[in-house]
Design a protein around this nucleic acid. Sequence first.
DNA 1: GTTTAAATTAAACGATTGTTTAATTTTTGT
DNA 2: ACAAAAATTAAACAATCGTTTAATTTAAAC
Lengths: 205, 205
Amino acid sequence: MTEFNSKQIEIINITEKLFAEKGFDGTSIREIAKAAEINVAMVSYYFGSKEKLLEAIILYRVSAFGVMLENLQNEPISPIEKVKKYICFYIKRIYENKDIYQILHFEIVNQKRTSDFPFFSEIKRKNLQLLENIIAEGKNSAIFKPKCNTVLIPTLIIGTFSQFYNNKKFYQEMLNLNDEASFEHYILNDFIEEITNVILGMLIK
Amino acid sequence: MTEFNSKQIEIINITEKLFAEKGFDGTSIREIAKAAEINVAMVSYYFGSKEKLLEAIILYRVSAFGVMLENLQNEPISPIEKVKKYICFYIKRIYENKDIYQILHFEIVNQKRTSDFPFFSEIKRKNLQLLENIIAEGKNSAIFKPKCNTVLIPTLIIGTFSQFYNNKKFYQEMLNLNDEASFEHYILNDFIEEITNVILGMLIK
DNA sequence: GTTTAAATTAAACGATTGTTTAATTTTTGT
DNA sequence: ACAAAAATTAAACAATCGTTTAATTTAAAC
């Protein structure tokens, strides 16, 4: 579909970080130009406008989310293992793409730019469908409870993670995770384990 | 401490909604003045500046959070009932104050305004302490598991709620909650119940 | 090597931003 | 009723905003 050259991708990467940190309205094109070491006119030249740059960032990042775990469903492992893999993959993806998740969070809430994101909703729907299939398998195998609200599970994962990450300072104090490395280690190990236990607790009989 | 007259409170209420909808940087003083039917100069007159108006909004709202459930700990009910009450109260409070939570979420993440919110952190800490006391009581009574991560519980509650509410449209479609009333009903009943089950599942043996 | 297209630049554009001024109206205290 | 204080106003302020222009440099094509 739409393709970006290396210069555009560089601008996208730098701007993504700025938008995540300061917000779309809190970031000026001149700031972007300075950070990316380009002339202010280049944003309009490459993307048309600031708003279209935002759209390009979202498109560029989210389209990479497309293929995720479609083969997970057919792997020869138990539903429990599948759920574990799902959660692990999902949290890692959010963590690695926290900037774009931050931007999307704001843009979805924001009433200024009436941007709806059909392809992002589509991914969410697909994502949820995959999980529901796995859980249905677990129900059929009588491993999972017959009644459990699956819709809230992705919400719980991404919501808890966002809340945790955005209050980084607070939790670093609380959990004695003083440096960046130990905070990351906590997320990729303890946090994932914790969330996995919560969700398996919801599912398993 | 700082007190606001009725005119100031009116401006605070109207601006709170605008900031939550469009963000601080996405809302101009002229928009505020129009919505509040005042002259643009009145914001500076009453609050000093736009940024001080933001601080006033946060101070005004968050200071009302102070006293919450201090007596909950001493009520003659089981730890399980206390946890239930805690969750119910907490979710209702977030729901009723979603605008200021939205603003705070953005301001905490935002790297532009180096505002730290010591009194908000203090409330969070107090909030968490109360929950930990209740859970400790449950552990002593051998009702709750001896090992369970309590730190993540408020994070889970507020995170899941925020994620749910901010993707209102998506979940309204998903759960067939077409009108505002049924969406609110879902939050105040089904959602609270769902979250309560998740957390009690984490705690109870 | 010349021509054509693409990339980059500095400067300017009008519009909007937050804030201040100075004048006027309204309210308050006596 | 009058003086003082508070509230409100329209207008102007300089600064910054996103975007465009027109000129110049760089790269590509033949």
